[in-house]
Design a protein around this nucleic acid. Structure first.
Lengths: 205, 205
DNA sequence: AATTTTGTTAACCAATTGGTTAAATTAAAT
DNA sequence: ATTTAATTTAACCAATTGGTTAACAAAATT
């Protein structure tokens, strides 16, 4: 399997189908036959290419979880004011989730259920990627007196809470606010500005 | 089965065990044999008392989802200033989730997966219970000029986002911030004040 | 005390599930 | 053209799963 150049059509078909089924149903709810049906292939091929359900799931999980941490470093490394950075992070993140609405719930749900250390290790590897930089950015602005004193950790949690939770709570929000999918999406677009303003209004000195 | 007064020990054992297993593993991941083992009973009794896995799940789901909407009406009906009400709601809600840490993820995860209209109807029934009153409270304060103009719907979403999301994201937060369970819990206790202050700072005129 | 009703058990069941296997087919290498 | 390797298929497998059944035990009723 080393450096093997091959026609990956079947493999790609499987990955595409698996992505859909796993994200929608989770590991426990997904069925190999359903993935095979969606990929238009014989179920035995799932095992030929990926050996087991768990391994196939792991590939999909790592791929999608990786997307949960887009390249914020460039934003955080720039010389722009922190408020602009927050604006960019919030907008990019909400846009990312609008494009992949089930992403947060899928990743967090499986993380809560998983006893698989592989998945946890995967997140550990992301740890220094942006949390430190974000913390540094925030601490710098506190020291400069631009923003109020607030725990960077809590602020970061707040930012991601405000961006991601509404998508997770979508069915409940839809019912409670009596809005349909289109209205929900419109609302999420609005949140790019509303969340940014909310955060900045809160921390501005 | 009408007005039947009976020894409910076995039924209660089942409910207690089912609560634990369903909340931890969800509907798809839960196994009837595991519930029976945890309840210390024979698996056939699950069907004797609750007829099917789905029906047992529904009982547990409605019970726990009901808890997701505690009696906020009393808080919202009082004459206290809105900021105090927000403080109370945030504190009560975070306390509620601290006591039932898996509650938000369980309910929202199953709501996202469920095609069962019973569950959706259940939430519809909760709709007018507190959303309207919350909206009225917010609109009143906007009109009085106490808080900035903000969409009540978005503000309500923000409040619940800030309260609930960290618990859903716990495994990821733990890894990224390198904190253990005790530290996480301490952090969540802190959030009662931090979230309230964050919100009030954001909307105060 | 006898009968009926309710609760419990162990064994069993059909269907489903993730996975395996051997043969057939296709593709690549010689 | 032949051989080897890779891919695909259909059938099959063992284990698991939610659920059923009949027998037995306990409780309630007559």
């Amino acid at each position: 399997m080393v450096n093997k150049i091959k026609d990956t059509t079947t493999e790609e078909k499987i990955l595409e189908a698996a992505r859909k089924v796993f994200i929608e149903r989770g590991l426990d709810g997904a069925r190999m036959q359903e993935i095979a049906d969606k990929a238009g292939i014989n179920k035995a091929l799932l095992h030929y290419y990926f050996r087991s359900k768990d391994k196939l799931f792991e590939v999909i999980f790592k791929e999608t979880a990786g997307n949960l941490f887009p390249k914020f470093e460039m934003i955080l490394n720039s010389d722009k004011p922190l408020f602009d950075k927050i604006d960019e992070i919030v907008s990019n993140y909400i846009d990312l989730i609008i494009k992949n609405p089930y992403l947060p719930l899928f990743v967090l749900s499986e993380m809560n259920k998983s006893r698989n250390l592989q998945l946890a290790n995967f997140f550990e590897m992301q740890r220094n990627k942006f949390v430190e930089k974000f913390v540094q950015n925030i601490e710098k602005e506190i020291k400069k007196g631009v923003i109020k004193k607030i725990s960077p950790a809590h602020l970061i949690i707040n930012i991601f809470s405000l961006c991601a939770f509404p998508f997770i709570a979508k069915p409940v929000i839809g019912i409670l606010l009596e809005i349909d999918d289109l209205q929900f999406k419109y609302m999420m677009e609005q949140r790019k500005k509303i969340v940014t303003d909310f955060i900045i209004a809160s921390i501005k000195k």
